[in-house]
Each structure stands twice: as structure tokens, then as C-alpha cells.
Amino acid sequence: MNASSVTSTTLPTSTSASRSVLLQLAAGAALGMVLLYGVAFAESPLMHNAAHDVRHVTVKPCH
């Protein structure tokens, strides 16, 4: 495991690859939030009934 050194500065050489990776991580996080909304918050009665027990157990406001 080659632990990376602590310098957090990045030079503009191959930063575009880094930026693309960070963007994809952000896209993943955004997808995660959309899914969380669907499982835990969406008001559709179908979604509510299907995920009902999970909403209660994960302490989301349910009804």
C-alpha cells in the first residue's frame, strides 16, 4: 500500500482526469440522494407502502 503523501495541491497537468473522477463521484452521490428520496421521502402511496417498515426503522418521518 503506497500511502500518498499529504500534499493536497494539484497542478494543472493531468488534473482534468482527476476532475473527471471527482465529477463521477459527485454524480454517484447525487444518484444516492435521489434514491434516498425515493425510499425514505417520496409521498407516492405505492412507495410509502412498499418501504413503510424501512422508513419507520430508519427513523424517517413517515406519515
Binding site: 503523501s5 500534499t7 493536497s8 463521484l25 459527485a26 444516492g32 434514491l35 425510499v39
Partner: peptide
């Protein structure tokens, strides 16, 4: 619903871990 909930949290966790890695 549990799997989807875990999936949503995993995606957030990966994003945070990835940023930590980026910051060294």
C-alpha cells in the same frame, strides 16, 4: 427497500472516501 437504502448510503460513502483519497 433496505437494499436500495443501503445502496444510496454506499454511493454517498464512496464519494466521501474518494474525496478523502484525493485530499491525500
Amino acid at each position: 427497500a433496505n437494499v436500495l437504502h443501503a445502496f444510496s448510503m454506499a454511493l454517498l460513502v464512496f464519494a466521501v472516501m474518494g474525496v478523502c483519497l484525493w485530499r491525500g
